[in-house]
Design a protein around this nucleic acid. Structure first.
Lengths: 191, 191
DNA sequence: TTCACATCTGAGCGCTGTACAGATGCCATT
DNA sequence: AATGGCATCTGTACAGCGCTCAGATGTGAA
């Protein structure tokens, strides 16, 4: 799995073949099959690690931010994670799409925080959402998650470079878009 | 390209190999290379058709909806397109990510409407956005696009099935999420 | 000492994207 | 009518891929 992570970071997701991972690990092409049923299972495992990393990044972002800015901080941390590990982020969502499910069972990294999705929901409550209005709460969480994911995928596109320039950098751009989503209070610090 | 579309719809994006397309078209595996530089160029062409189709769907949605509901209608049409052509939608964004750019040059289908992205911006203006505040306008457009794209990718996930059930169907769910995004006025009709 | 088990190898199958030399058929020019 | 250029297609080939399987190796428990 370390080999897989190295290949992914160095060569991108399209180069992440079982054989390449085996080469990187210095073993024969058949060796990985004694640890993973097939390629998809290896990718699942890599993706799982990715969700753990994302959760840790979000925990950290929350920890170093004012309570009033927690939601924005989570959004920013989310988008920055996707920017810093684009290949991994893609593997994570490719696996999710194949299963038609977000991996809401990732709680290994820091169980008391549940998982990344739960963190968003809990932060909604912190910000005044009514926890007894479950449907409403979950809709708000989904909406925020959609916004963050959408922005994560758009933020790297060249068309929006001029917006970053006009607004004074990437961070200002992300803040501004989140503000326009109407879900997030605004202005925190670096990511 | 017809063969490519057929393979894509029938077998999904992972089965969309040049050789499969050639087989479907009844031609040798080398034949496509006289029309496309490589596989990526074929996929680009397929993706381009996809953006045209999306634009047409959005034009139609706008045409059959009250002016006050145009923005929601676009969002719903967008998400429904992604639901109805999931393989094509994936090819479209795979190509976009490779280029790190949305194809904002797709204006063939209906030039007077520009393209899908422009339609969203124009509809923002219809709804009262100030066209002279260009940065603000574009941020609002980006935010809406991000929300729609995010929802398009999430809407099929199993975790949210119970929300659809509780709210009385997929359409109600989409409406509700859009409402929570704060960008969209609400309630239109079918898609 | 023996046996079970986890791990790994090497060869091999059918698939893929891509390259290239040559065939075919059509269209414009002479 | 004959010629030549050009677009299109074929057949073959190569390296790389996911995956399978029979057998080798080593390690810990009985």
């Amino acid at each position: 799995m370390e080999a897989a992570r190295r290949v992914l970071e160095a060569e991108g997701p399209s180069a992440l073949s079982l054989r390449a991972v085996a080469r990187e690990a210095g073993v024969s092409p058949a060796a990985p099959y004694h640890h993973f049923k097939d390629k998809a299972e290896l990718l699942d495992a890599v993706a799982h690690e990715g969700w753990e990393m994302l959760q840790l990044a979000m925990i950290e972002a929350k920890a170093r931010t004012d309570r009033s800015q927690h939601l924005t901080a989570l959004g920013i941390a989310y988008v920055c994670f996707a920017r810093d590990y684009p290949a991994l982020y893609r593997v994570m969502y490719d696996a999710a799409r194949d299963k038609e499910a977000l991996p809401m069972d990732v709680e290994d990294a820091n169980p008391e925080n549940g998982n990344a999705y739960c963190m968003v929901r809990d932060t909604m409550i912190e910000h005044g959402a009514d926890p007894s209005a479950e449907t409403h709460l979950e809709l708000a969480t989904v909406a925020a998650w959609c916004g963050a994911h959408g922005l994560a995928e758009m933020a790297g596109f060249k068309q929006f470079q001029h917006l970053k320039d006009e607004l004074g950098g990437e961070r200002a751009f992300l803040d501004a878009v989140f503000r326009h989503m109407g879900l997030f209070p605004t202005q925190a610090h670096d990511c």
